[in-house]
Simulated scan of single mutants.
Amino acid sequence: MTSQRFLSLDVFRGLTVAAMILVNNPGSWDYVYPPLAHAKWHGCTPTDLVFPFFLFAVGNAMSFALKKYEAAGNAAVLKKILTRTLLIFGIGLLLNWFPFVKWTETGSLTIKPLSQLRIMGVFPRIALCYGAAALLIHYLKDKGAFVAAGVLLFVYWFLLVVFGQGDPYSLEGYAGLPLDKLILGEQHMYRGEGVPFDPEGLLSTLPAICNVIFGYLAGRFIQEQGKTYEMLARLMIIGSILIFAALCWDMVFPINKKIWTSSYVLYTVGIALLLLSVVMYLIEFRGQTKWTPFFTVFGKNPLFIYVLAAVVVKLYALIRPAADQNLYSWIYENIFRPIGGNMNGSFLFALFHVCLFAAVGWWMDKKKIYVRV
């Protein structure tokens, strides 16, 4: 296997983190360009690609790291996988609880009760998907993990059809909803749909594991084939086949991020392969690297920068320049909205924060500070 380093993989990971910050932080949720908003239910917008791309990038990174761990023996590998899984999951719980206090209707601060702490979310899903994918890859190896991913996708489809109620692909009929209520409890679930429903729930984590596995397999394939046009062509062909298969499957099993359908997995992995192919062509084959530093600084500290961005925004919501306005809305209303109006101002708010955390990443890289989780 070649030991070549691929800058394009770092850029892809950094681009994904930058996109996560961009779509998570509009100046106002009332003014968001359609491509920067999630699909209401079925379908897929550019924003719906960001999280599965990140899981794909986790798999890419695993393809380099796991072989190093395995050289230390089985016990060391299991310890590393378990430790990292628990650490990322724990960070997710703390992030969900942060800033640990909230404003009451009377204008006083009170501790946020653990009885209402959301258990799942982005980081807990990353943790579970990483841990499960790493164990499957470690024990089943590459071909076995590929087969396991296929089994997971079809088993998930089977579970939704058999245990779903009415329309199994609707919010009300989704089989994962009663499972989350039973195991997590309604008070520990997300309520973005107006009812207790977690888009990062337990059952839909099963197909999400496949995004990591496919990312790992893509990373292994790239390393084995090296920087050749044949490798690049195969990546693009595989990506195109997956997109075609996903669109065919969509006719009976709709592409849907919120319940993370199996067709959605194939669709997002296919697009990830095509995007990665384009990035690799520009960087590895054409040598066009002048634009890459902006994204590599995100890719060198991906989880830390994402956590930092979430912490800063949560602190905005806690700080109140006025009794009826937090710092988040104050910045938008007094700085970005006057500059660009409602829609453009909201976008500029998000773009400013991407640049802000790029500057943090640049400083950390200059100081050789790399936070590994």
Rank of each mutant, 00 (worst) to 15 (best):
G176I: 13
G176F: 14
G176T: 12
L177W: 13
L177H: 10
P178R: 02
P178T: 03
L179F: 15
L179R: 12
L179D: 12
D180Q: 09
D180I: 04
K181T: 11
K181Y: 04
K181W: 09
K181C: 05
K181V: 01
K181F: 02
I183G: 05
I183V: 15
I183W: 06
L184Y: 08
L184E: 07
E186I: 10
E186K: 08
Q187W: 01
H188Y: 06
M189Y: 02
M189D: 01
Y190S: 10
Y190W: 15
Y190H: 13
R191V: 15
R191L: 06
G192R: 02
E193T: 14
G194M: 11
V195G: 03
V195I: 15
V195H: 04
P196K: 04
P196W: 08
F197P: 03
F197V: 04
F197K: 02
D198H: 03
P199E: 11
P199F: 11
E200T: 03
E200W: 12
L202W: 08
L203K: 01
L203I: 02
S204Q: 10
T205D: 00
L206V: 09
P207F: 04
A208P: 07
A208G: 07
A208T: 09
A208I: 10
A208M: 07
I209W: 02
C210E: 06
C210D: 11
C210H: 03
N211G: 01
N211P: 03
V212N: 08
I213L: 08
I213G: 07
F214V: 04
F214M: 14
F214S: 03
G215L: 08
G215E: 06
G215C: 05
G215K: 10
G215N: 06
G215H: 06
G215F: 07
Y216C: 07
Y216Q: 04
L217R: 05
L217F: 07
L217H: 04
L217M: 05
L217G: 04
A218V: 12
A218R: 00
A218F: 10
G219S: 09
G219F: 07
G219R: 01
F221P: 03
F221D: 02
F221R: 10
F221N: 02
F221L: 05
I222R: 06
I222V: 15
I222Q: 02
Q223L: 13
Q223Y: 06
E224L: 11
E224C: 00
Q225D: 00
Q225L: 00
Q225E: 13
Q225V: 00
Q225Y: 00
Q225S: 12
G226A: 06
G226Y: 05
G226F: 08
T228S: 15
Y229V: 06
Y229N: 08
Y229I: 06
E230L: 13
L232I: 10
L232P: 14
A233D: 07
L235Q: 14
L235G: 15
L235H: 12
I237M: 14
I237G: 09
I237E: 14
I238H: 06
I238Y: 13
I238A: 15
